[in-house]
Design a protein around this nucleic acid. Sequence first.
DNA 1: CAACTGCGAAAAATCGATTTACTCATTTCG
DNA 2: CGAAATGAGTAAATCGATTTTTCGCAGTTG
Lengths: 353, 353
Amino acid sequence: MAHKEAKQRRPSIHDVASRAGVSAATVSKVMAGVTTVKSENAQRVFDAVEHLGYRVDPLASDMRRAKRRIIGAIMPEFESEFFGQMVTELEGLAEQRGYTLVAASSRESEAREKEVLARMHDWRVAGVVLAPVRNEHGPAAAFMKANGMTGVLIDRVLSDDAFDTVSADSAAASAEVATMLVGMGHRHILVIGLAEQAATVRARLDGFRAQALALDPLVRIDVILSEVSVDPLRSSLRDYFGKGERPTAVYSLLLKGTLVALSEFRRRGWHCPNDISLVGFDDAEWMQVTWPAIAAVVQPVRQIATEAMNLLFARIEGEEGPPTARLEPCRVLMRESVGLPGGGPHSGGGDRQ
Amino acid sequence: MAHKEAKQRRPSIHDVASRAGVSAATVSKVMAGVTTVKSENAQRVFDAVEHLGYRVDPLASDMRRAKRRIIGAIMPEFESEFFGQMVTELEGLAEQRGYTLVAASSRESEAREKEVLARMHDWRVAGVVLAPVRNEHGPAAAFMKANGMTGVLIDRVLSDDAFDTVSADSAAASAEVATMLVGMGHRHILVIGLAEQAATVRARLDGFRAQALALDPLVRIDVILSEVSVDPLRSSLRDYFGKGERPTAVYSLLLKGTLVALSEFRRRGWHCPNDISLVGFDDAEWMQVTWPAIAAVVQPVRQIATEAMNLLFARIEGEEGPPTARLEPCRVLMRESVGLPGGGPHSGGGDRQ
DNA sequence: CAACTGCGAAAAATCGATTTACTCATTTCG
DNA sequence: CGAAATGAGTAAATCGATTTTTCGCAGTTG
């Protein structure tokens, strides 16, 4: 079908129009599926389209409308399974509705987050799915508000007075973790996390603590929250263990913390679960193949993505009303890294099941 | 500065023009940094831009030029560290040159890969960075060729007669792995991988085998290559071990294979490195915190991205000449998962260092 | 003093669609 | 039978820039 059009200009709607012997407006209508076109003309258009290999230029098509058929997605990073899956899901959902997803990474920087958002605004995107670096009160959300953009906030958010929010039900999941750990007899538990992401970390911590204390007021819960980056967390943790503290279980409020905990256990020669138990928020593929397999809270990526897109498109189509704050339930996967406290000789024996 | 323009139409170049008392063409020139504008007029334009909060609409700006300032990136998936890092790097490099990166996932499907590419073509992207699902001979590359698109192929490619290619020097890295394993005394090694991605897997396998046999012609190298998906690989591996085969080391040609190997070791209660050694192609953050830490070949993501973008932009700017095929050197990280053959009692003892 | 050169800016064409307004026919109905 | 309604299609305006062409005016030159 396509012979000579190798590297030439692509056919435009006018090329199709003249070949079909109709006006460009008619071609536009046929492409849009309008029914008020004589079927003979429609056929001529189809033939011309086929012959020329014509496809609508989505950018040109978007020029006339105020909201372009583009959805912006801003994630704190692309390197983790969680956000990778999220982008994949969002992309699919956008495509389903004939939109293109343009994803950008804020690289864990609020300054960059705002810059990227401004660029999305320049592009006149119809809507934005923003996973803020910190929480819903950052400069990016303020920018969206000030410029009347439509958007949904996800992941590191709880609720907002201007935008719909969707996130994992961190508090409930954390409570479930607490139930399990306390139920197994753990009475001295260390919780670690990064405090920057105030919204979610707070929820996870509070959810965990409330439930643990409800079950047994005498449970001792230590907390190490580092600001900003992961390195201070590592050294705080090192100090903590160095002082001789020996909790029987550690609950990490985020993936990076789980890695830090594991590497500290390593340094000290501690094995899970005999020497210490470990549960992490956020699952990853490798966690089920290591020895021991690492217990983790699985976030409902697909549900979050689906709900976010539903809400976003409803707003794009003009839905009014106060913003909603959705929490999607997590699953807690108890794996071998969790055991009874004092389940084995410290720093000895094997860690096999 | 911005008071009332909350949700109204954004200011266009004409709004700026009339406020500055000049024509739209003059505004355009000022924004483009053309020097043939009287400085007084330029100042008036700057003031108007400032006052109105004007920003160029990149989409409208791109309409007139044949090549739009957009780079398309097509990755087989977004869920892995490798491609996540790759997209992040590519995004940064595109931005540096004033381009927008639009990334899409082909979800390991050649059909989808071509579809996505066609959509990029509709967008009139200036260039494409394509990481093919299989290799350089797939339908997507053919589509690019047939439509005169400019692009670079990366990762699962060796060389091409139409496009520049950039990938990790898999063969050299594999040879290095062979040197280490054979040097440590391993004489029965299993290599596992997925055959679909012919280009790279072939290179990795050949590089490994050639070097191993060069060092000792009596080395026994078994190979399990599964087609298409990871599940057949798992069952082949299970059969292989089930038949009583006991290589002293396994070299996985790709990340998913490493996970499969680990989980099979798990099932059988084998520990690295005492029961069996393991090296995987492709590094991941978790590999250094598990017990044992997993030896891996680290791909030079940044170099691949940088080189790919350099080549791509050179072509976009009209550079002629035959396509080049670059190989970027990898690093091999020997970690605890590799030890001397028969380094410990089988299925017994600890796996500590 | 008429013709020429240049500079800087404005007017108009362009990119590739969509959408509005308008023109003919042909029906429908009072 | 004539007026209004409907149907099918087109020309032109529009979206927001960029780029080409044209123009006015000042200063030179023959």
